[in-house]
Amino acid sequence: MDRRNFLKTSLVVGGTALTCKNARAQEQHNPDEFVGILVDTTRCIGCRACEIACGETWGMHVPDVLNDGALETHRNTDENQFTVVNKFETEKGDVFVKKQCMHCYQAACATACPTEAMKQMQGGPVVWRGNKCIGCRFCMVSCPFDMPKFEYDEWNPKLQKCTMCFERLEKGQKPACVAACPTDALMFGPRLKNLEVARHRIYSHPDEYEHHIYGEHEVGGTGYIYLSAVPFDQIGFRTDLGKRPYPEYTKEFLYAVPMILFGVPAFLLGLNALADSSRSGPESEFSLEFDIDNEGDK
């Protein structure tokens, strides 16, 4: 490339970059900005409308909320139900907690997947794509919340978990559970805004809330964030997960892989050349060839 062309190109590139920057600054909503759901457990009345809406939207188990007495036990999500509401008896009365995939912003499951079947979509929802999945269940091993659920009784099993209603989001709708919630216990929106709302609620009612937003920093930040009136370990949350995003636990190892692939073969060949020359003495020339029958001939 000659100098004139180079200058021209850099001017064009520079100009484009500038315009882009301006455009981004003016943009109201950045599609890459993470979205999420704020769950305010102090507002939840345990009506389980979210469970019904979720089951109906996804063609899965629709619970009979009036008669099944499911709140008496602590349930977990399973391959037939993406979300469940559990009741916890605490010093501040009964607390209802919705449980589903947390949609981590550095998702361990998506990092673990060898085929990108678990994938983080634009805006943050983590979804599963069956045409890619090999069923290795490494996502289940890696998920700190044990959320991907495997259909153990199918010959062609799927991995089931909440998708934050990704298809509905693409159409500009809210997730089904949020749309169904009668008490605004669930709030969908950009994560930054959710955090602001959460902080505002804590600061304006400092005695009613635990001064902690679960999911703000846990495992590097999650799409679902929770507010609570009681400490989170009393309502079924793990508080020992740490703030480090889980993919970072394998980062160093994966970083070292090319390092070893560069270095070790070179080291081995060098060692071999050294061993070879010291063994066979000055009269023999350097040779890469090896005789597997050396020993037999001697």
Binding site: A110, T111, A112, C113, P114, T115, E116, A117, K132, I134, C136, F138, P247, T250, F253, L254
Partner: peptide
């Protein structure tokens, strides 16, 4: 799938 190129999960240890 991990071999034929339609979905390389480079981030995965597996």
């Amino acid at each position: 799938n991990p071999y034929i190129g339609n979905s390389f999960g480079f981030s995965s240890v597996l």
